[in-house]
Design a protein around this nucleic acid. Structure first.
Lengths: 235, 235
DNA sequence: TATTTAATTGTAAAAAAAACACTTAAAATA
DNA sequence: TATTTTAAGTGTTTTTTTTACAATTAAATA
């Protein structure tokens, strides 16, 4: 037996929802689609899965090809398979989301790839069912960030507490008391205070912090622990 | 333009990881695969996605065809796309997990479909990368059950507090103080105490409870709330 | 030097979680 | 019929966590 001979084969694509944070608002990276249908309309980074690559490889390749981004946080989100989602031909899309330090790539992205960052609230209409993908990604990020310290992926290596708090407030669409926030976040043991200030945001300047990478990996699973006896669970 | 002419098309399958709970341990429903390769070896419920059905439709259809199960809790888990995962031909598999009241279907399943329930710890080797799927599903269930009351899907309409506690202890692989457990679970307002006892488990008998379905749907998102200001989040 | 702006910091009250053990219902048995 | 056995059911205290709340300080600018 060589093949599953009677079965239909389908097109398989990957779409990447790329989030960034500029210190103010959450942003979404979009690109003008380069081929028909919907050519020149705003779209997520997408492409077809090739015969010899895994889904993770495909999403990383597409990210690199369309934006130059490499080595960023990238996680599978959900697979969308409505038969009519692509009007040309049935295409299954495996959606991934990425979290990116926007400053690290800002110039390169716009200069070389004609991709653009849009504030989540002011992003243009995107093609097919991609708006649904973005909504699901926002939900997933909240879900995950409530338990794991993934939001640090959106920040530069050095960041201030006000920046971090602002990010949490954006993602959870809420406001947090800054005394309580700093207590909580410092209590995790994930942050190292640097002897240097960011003077951009205020006259006084805010101290920079960086991640304690050892603790970061050790505590990733139980960042904000609510599960009974986290040690006993093989998460 | 009619087709994405230059792209490779791939086989797309669905695999369903079906969990049940018999009051004692978590169980997994497996079937003897009906075709080559790996014919007659234990496998998850799987099948190919047909040209005109969505992924959710495909998973529901396969579940029904192979087990008779219908209308059960079924959620997309993850898509597995390693190029070599199926030795015959590259096949992408979208994994779903289901939560089932084992007693409701026990006889029907074994009589008509030759599927079998296995204790999670004593399940036989399964084909391809399905063990990986099961591990991921276990993780996801813990993750989700910590926040949402999905575990009730594994119980019959009437259940006792000791049964419910036992289920939580199984899923989280821990032990819980029964006084604290009952306080917590009753405080959710999701349970209605019935005037009837289950005499099977003990001499004294334990009171049956049932879900308050109104509260269940209302509180599904914030079952055990840990997110700051859950009301302000559009989850 | 005064003003402005945002960063930094602590404590008290309230709520939630955890620790802890005896009583009771009902069947089985002596 | 009395005793034993088994698991169900239940309350309080302590500890921990979370929340509410506002004055002071560093540094630039006027």
């Amino acid at each position: 037996m060589q093949k599953y001979s009677k079965q239909t084969r389908l097109l398989l694509a990957v779409d990447c929802i790329i989030f960034g944070f500029d210190g103010e608002t959450l942003k979404l990276l979009l690109i003008k689609r380069g081929f028909q249908p919907e050519k020149n309309n705003w779209s997520l980074m997408g492409g077809f899965v090739q015969p010899d690559e895994s889904l993770d490889q495909a999403s990383n390749r597409i990210l690199k090809q369309l934006t130059g981004l490499e080595g960023v946080y990238l996680e599978q989100l959900h697979t969308f398979g409505n038969p009519l989602r692509d009007p040309i031909e049935r295409t299954i899309s495996v959606a991934y989301f990425a979290l990116v330090d926007i400053h690290k790539y800002e110039k390169q992205i716009s200069a070389d790839y004609h991709a653009e960052w849009f504030s989540l609230k002011r992003a243009p209409k995107i093609i097919f069912d991609q708006q649904e993908m973005v909504e699901l990604a926002k939900q997933r990020i909240r879900y995950k960030a409530a338990l794991h310290p993934i939001l640090f992926e959106l920040l530069p290596g050095k960041f201030t507490l006000p920046q971090l708090q602002n990010l949490y407030e954006c993602v959870f669409n809420t406001t947090i008391d800054k005394r309580n926030f700093s207590k909580r976040v410092l209590a995790t043991g994930l942050l190292i205070k640097l002897n240097e200030k960011d003077k951009a945001g205020s006259k006084r300047g805010a101290y920079y912090y960086q991640l304690n990478m050892q603790n970061y990996y050790a505590k990733f699973q139980a960042f904000m622990n609510f599960i009974p006896n986290p040690d006993s669970i093989g998460l």
